[in-house]
Design a protein around this nucleic acid. Structure first.
Lengths: 221, 221, 221, 221
DNA sequence: CATGAATGAGTGTTCATTCAT
DNA sequence: TATGAATGAACACTCATTCAT
């Protein structure tokens, strides 16, 4: 059913995508691993390549042999997450979910559960991506439109279907998209970036699902 | 009524707070102004003091005469926003709003309108504060608890009142706080940081108010 | 007798010498005072004019109004000590001592007592002068020859007289000068610079007088 | 006999001590060499790292790659001289000298000859060490007690032995130590720091040996 | 006479990047 | 492939000095 697991581990996924034929050496893996941790913690700008090298047990030159520039090392971490992996997975998931004759509530719960699991497993990379997108105006302008477009296209389809099924109020798609974007970006950023949570309880998911569906206003009796 | 304006301009407010009697020179004002713009655009770490100096038409030494360190220049921008100005204003506003016998919907609309206006007027400082809080783990750990505490204390009072008036569903305060935090942080960050909006239309406010109250799920007839 | 005190206070003496007609203002006195203390403690190079200004309760500009440059402030402290005051006093003293029909031992004791008293009273200035002469090769080359010449001329006369009186061994003047220079520079630098003593006990003076006269070797019986 | 030479070259000695297994690169040696020369001539505070770099034919960064800070570069020069090399050598020498049944005069002559040779060979480092110890109060307070203690312990033994042999007058050890310290510090500082001599003639050594043993007072017949 | 805001050349230090081994 | 010594441009920061008030 909807809970079927998809492999979410980015490090493995990257190997397939970024260097289809090039096997990563142990040292390369270690470099990426350390870079993610440090970038997530202190930000790209505040992390020295020398620090990465030391923590990874590697010579400084080795990093540049593999990634050319520090910027490129960052992109080697971010790009797979954003460009290839995210949509691919989402499509799989959405297709899977929509084939079932599930309600919007079921979809929402499954979708959130799945995305939360995904981010939990790749928490640090998520932090790197979000922090850098937010921090550098130019990076934001390059990447954000792509993400928004990719997300809109997919979500509009979903919204349309559930509107037809009568599960969603008759509000313009645009407004729904915005609100969904608002509440989801808020949820992920609050929990995984600001509060640095490692996982989300099922109760918290229930709360947010309920809230998205019903709000917390009391309609006058 | 609830829309009575409170002066929101931070630069003027800072003068009063940070240096009660010390007049800022023209050059100091220009330094702060330029620093805010550059920090907001490229982030603190990616902004050189030499660049600030050049754009402000000032010698680099002048910056350090006044602010001692680059870090302190950042704090001179952030602290007033966070520590003194935010709670003060919020209290005024909440007191004002609660005295009126308004509904939760009216309160929400007024509150959001007021806060949005405030952030719009100090958009760049808001960007600086949020970006730096998100970017540096240590800064986050120092500042975030203060903000959360300050916000919680105030909002719980408000929530209690409207619960008693029957305007808010009977959900644990904690859950409501989280959802409100989620949706508001999402709203402000999406609009003012990610989408870099300069203002918010009244329609958008209506949408978000409606959403918070009712969600967009269609309860089955 | 030989112990008659000569006024040793440099600050007063400087007023007469450096600015014969210009009275020093209170602020000027304070500047010099603070500068001497700080130069003595941390060295000229490690003392900022801003620090002097702050400790003297004076605006930075005031220092430069009076002394033009930091270098000149240093010279205003050193020059009187070296150029005018030192020889003047020594001559008075030597004249006074030689008129008496005293032994070399008496002369030595009186001379050392007098010079030690003088340096004790102007300890910090002495430290400044010695430290700077030692620290900067160029300053040394300008000042040292003058001091050596001045000292030699006076001491040779004294040595000659006591040789004729049979109080000093028949050793070349040059050798005696060197040994006297060695032992006195060693005595002053050890005590007032390295050990930072504020005064010298009479016993210590007796020891050094005895040593200069007799050494501490035991001639075989 | 007592004149057997011990290798005095500090640069070689440092290699052994400071980085037992780490080979110094050619550039590192050049940096130390130039630093010693410039520090000796103008003092640490008046020497810019950029100047050292230029004269050493090295990029400025290279200095900091190897020594971390300018302060540490200074210590890399001073510490071996003071902490390891000085006592080690002195012990070898004293042991060697005391085994022989030599007189105090022979010991003194040999000891001075040896120490003078040592300082001549490492003249500039000696200048750096002395200048910095004198110049910075805090450095003085850290280093001087160590030197005094190390010297006292060794010299007291020597003095005791020669007292028993009847070669030294029956004066308190403390007084002898002070006088010896005074005359030796005076001798080394006068000659190697103030007069900047490169070597000491044998006649000068004879003079100082004679003086220490006998003084230059004429005991009345 | 005294101030203190402003200057700008200079300083120690960092760090992404290169390249000979 | 991996190293790490070397680089040099850039950076935050200092400080003696100037000058309008």
């Amino acid at each position: 059913m909807v809970n079927k697991m998809v492999n979410n581990n980015l490090l493995d996924e990257m190997a397939k995508i970024l260097k289809k034929s090039n096997k990563q050496t142990v040292k390369q893996k270690k470099i990426i691993e350390v870079a993610i941790t440090l970038f997530a913690e202190k930000g790209y700008s505040n992390t020295a390549t020398s620090e990465i090298a030391k923590m990874a047990g590697v010579a400084e030159g080795t990093i540049f042999k593999h990634y050319g520039t520090k910027e490129n090392l960052l992109l080697s971490i971010m790009v797979p997450f954003i460009k290839d992996f995210f949509p691919t997975m989402a499509d799989e998931l959405i297709g899977e979910l929509m084939n079932d004759k599930c309600t919007f509530e079921e979809f929402l719960r499954a979708f959130l559960t799945n995305r939360i699991a995904f981010i939990s497993e790749n928490r640090e990379i998520f932090q790197v991506v979000i922090k850098e997108i937010i921090y550098k105006e130019e990076l934001k302008n390059e990447i954000l439109p792509y993400i928004l477009e990719a997300a809109s296209v997919r979500l509009v389809k979903v919204i349309e279907i559930f509107k037809q099924r009568g599960d969603i109020k008759d509000i313009p798609n645009d407004s729904i998209l915005k609100m969904l974007g608002t509440v989801m970006s808020g949820f992920f950023i609050s929990n995984f970036i600001l509060l640095n949570k490692k996982s989300i309880s099922e109760d918290a998911i229930e709360d947010i699902v309920f809230f998205i569906l019903n709000g917390f206003g009391q309609s006058p009796q």
